[in-house]
Design a binder for these strands. Structure first.
Lengths: 144, 144
DNA sequence: TTTCCTGCAAAAGCTTTGCAAGTAC
DNA sequence: GTACTTGCAAAGCTTTTGCAGGAAA
């Protein structure tokens, strides 16, 4: 709790009860919740919390590098407070699971760096991050 | 044009003027247009075309395997009629560029197959497709 | 005490849907 | 002729915004 306060301070974010609650729920969640899911979960501890505040707060977190908005094709945006480079599996029911970090790291390491440099040169862009998403046919069966 | 008719027939889609126009615009586009962009472009040839039809048609195309809805974090969904496994660069302005297919194929080939099998086993999913997105800091400078 | 944050409600996108008329097969 | 498609308008979602009161620094 005190940790989160210093985290906010380091990132130039004011510390409010709502933000503490939202961040705590997001950081503990493994399911990459939507704004609305966060709202209902954080409501458990913060009885007075509005959905608009959740959206505003998530936007502030993303802007200050405390979380990431994940791309997806259906429903609302999903958010992830885990900023390490890691992979997701997109299941058929629209949910996202993390790939265990050892496997994800091996897959990312296998990516030839010189090829990325070549792409940067050919397209005239600087690649900040590589986002790998594994698209699954069926929902994960033995993973919650 | 006649090609598209047979393509539709093979995929079990009825052939209407609107669908032909929408598909023609989508297939020629390199910019992964949104439904609204497609609407305005297809309107050039089909004066009577409604946005609802564009949405319904794109949904039918996706369902019948003629195009893919792309995940993104901002604005509306984007669509791609190129169903080959290929990579995208997401630029800071929210647009998506294709990575030249030779480079993309080399990157995909570099991915260790046995690692994917291990992920399938550990998570209990079947991976249908690997989606790699290169996230760029700045808009592409010499690529249109 | 200044600046930022919050809740509320309204508004603004994006997308889907109900329906009557029209079209493909 | 039957089943599917279209345009229109309305509704449904997700997300953003204006504003007045309140809290952080």
């Amino acid at each position: 709790m005190c940790d989160i306060r210093t985290l906010f301070a380091r990132h130039g974010l004011r510390c409010t009860k709502q933000r503490l609650d939202i961040y705590a729920v997001l950081a503990e969640s493994k399911s990459h919740p939507t704004a609305e899911e966060l709202f209902w979960q954080a409501r458990g501890t913060s009885a007075d919390l509005s959905l608009a505040t959740v959206y505003n707060t998530l936007e502030a977190f993303c802007r200050h590098g405390l979380c990431r908005k994940l791309a997806n094709t259906e429903g609302g945006a999903r958010f992830d407070a885990d900023l390490s480079e890691h992979l997701h599996v997109a299941t058929a029911d629209g949910s996202l699971c993390d790939v265990p970090s050892d496997l994800g790291a091996r897959l990312l390491d296998a990516m030839p760096k010189e090829l990325l440099v070549e792409i940067e040169e050919r397209l005239g862009v600087r690649i900040a991050r590589v986002n790998i998403e594994l698209v699954a046919d069926e929902p994960a069966s033995d993973f919650e």
